[in-house]
Amino acid sequence: MRLWWNKIWPPLVAVLFLLGIWQLSTSLFEIEKWILPSPINIAREVLTESSRLWEHTLATVKLTGIGFTIGTSVGLLIAIVLHSIPFLKSALYPLLILSQNVPTIALAPLLMIWFGFGLLPKIIVITLVCFFPVAIAMMSGLRQTDPIMLSYMRMIGASKRQIFVKLELPHALPSIFSGIKIAATYSVMGAVIAEWIGSDKGIGYYMMLQKSSYRTDRVFIAISIIVMLSLTMFAIIALLEKWFVRWNRRQES
């Protein structure tokens, strides 16, 4: 517990210090509220908006959850298939990278045109940003399987399936988790972008609405909620990792 506190207080002090400077400078230089609201202004606005915020946050959490689950599953599946069929890997790997060069913000409106304003295009957007880090991390994890252990498994006559389940998959777990961690934070971003383009609820929608009426304070609220959601997603995955990869030496020291 003490160790935890020792780690947490320096960044906490830094954040509080920055907030203090922010607060002081807004009153000192008399900055207009619609340009830069003070932290206290923002905090006060949270209270008056709380019920509406809660609704929108819930919608975003739901969308993020569904999108993240599907996106990560697609990533894992792609990695497994491409790993077991080398020909497919050499054929599709460039396409995978290409898929990441198309900017999401440009693709999202197209998806709305093709698939309407329902859940489907939003999930496609999140899947597109989520699957890539998972698939790439897992494939490199699978490729780096310890050659000595691999040759041991072959010598004792393990089947391809046994080698995958008993050796390659557990060996790749740390890499898979680092990919999923990136996907977790991306998924929140993906959800917000999807809500910008076409939605009537969610934090992304709320943010767009407030921006167009110059409610900078509320935009700040939306930003902080997005940051907190990303952090929460990251923390959940980190906890899962700690549970699944508890044998890892690096984690203990």
Partner: peptide
């Protein structure tokens, strides 16, 4: 699959 094998390095699975 007809032999039992002990390699040069222990090759125990760390997990």
């Amino acid at each position: 699959g007809h032999i039992s094998f002990m390699p040069q390095q222990p090759a125990l699975f760390p997990w």
